[in-house]
Design a protein around this nucleic acid. Structure first.
Lengths: 146, 146
DNA sequence: ACGTTATTCGTAATCACTCAAAACACCCGA
DNA sequence: TCGGGTGTTTTGAGTGATTACGAATAACGT
């Protein structure tokens, strides 16, 4: 039984610990979201839910939205919103990496800091704004689509 | 009569010419959109429509969406979609400038290429992607909000 | 002016997400 | 072991922005 649990959910304990240390209760829906985003980053709420229901048939789409919002607020997930697409979620948080989106198929990939130094962040305050974050999205064609 | 026309719409002829050279018919709705975005860039469809109806009372919101979509496709407008906000439109096209959004009031301002050289565009192809555009959004607080 | 064609209107529908209220689950102390 | 209380999920309805579509209308070339 331990064998089974370990085999199917190797990172479940780590996920549970992460939830607890964020002050959130460990629930099946939250574990499912974390587990699925491990294997398929840059997924939207509907996709995550579709895969989650095979394990948790009672999980509603609204609950999944709820879970994702909570986990994002808790800093366990990062939410990105490419133009013309639904919000996507990923587990990589804390580093300021960027994303590249395929114009043709919509596929998203991570892009680490592309210029040698801090990524495109202007420390100067442009037009009186006190800038704290730079958000960069690259657009192009993925290997499959060109 | 000429006086009146010139006084109220100094750039109307230029706008009409731009529409024609883009292969689009010159209609009141399109002129209104272009005229309003001249004075208030970074506006969303609803705002543009609200101002447009004082001149063009019959213009529907749906037509405004239609107009903005057409003009964007024709390259006369640029559409930006900051997270958690409706799509905004502006007339500055052709140069790849960026934007800074106020976290508090949502105000948007233009930011010209912030680093000396080409703005944050990595010529290398990251992860097999052929990148053609870099889109940068800065977040911070505007002068009024801090 | 006339006919062709593009554009707009009005209604309906969609999509992604939010909100509110009720049902539920789990931990704590009595 | 039994209740409470807090936090989570469900259910269902509702919102805001945008798109679809067929019919009506307006621009443009001739």
């Amino acid at each position: 039984m331990d064998d089974l649990a370990v085999r199917t959910e190797p990172a479940a304990d780590a996920d549970a610990a992460a939830l607890r240390s964020a002050g959130l209760k460990v629930t099946r829906g939250r574990l499912a979201a974390l587990r699925l985003l491990q294997r398929m980053p840059h997924s939207d709420a509907e996709t995550i839910h579709r895969h989650a229901v095979t394990d948790e048939p009672t999980l509603s789409v609204q609950s999944m939205h709820n879970v994702l919002t909570d986990l994002t607020r808790a800093g366990l997930l990062r939410r990105i919103e490419p133009e013309r697409s639904a919000a996507l979620y990923e587990r990589r948080v804390g580093d300021n990496h960027h994303h590249v989106v395929c114009r043709a198929c919509g596929k998203v990939a991570d892009v680490d800091c592309v210029v040698g130094h801090a990524p495109c962040l202007a420390p100067s305050d442009a037009g009186g704004f006190a800038i704290d974050t730079a958000e960069v999205v690259f657009w192009g064609l993925c290997a499959d689509c060109r």
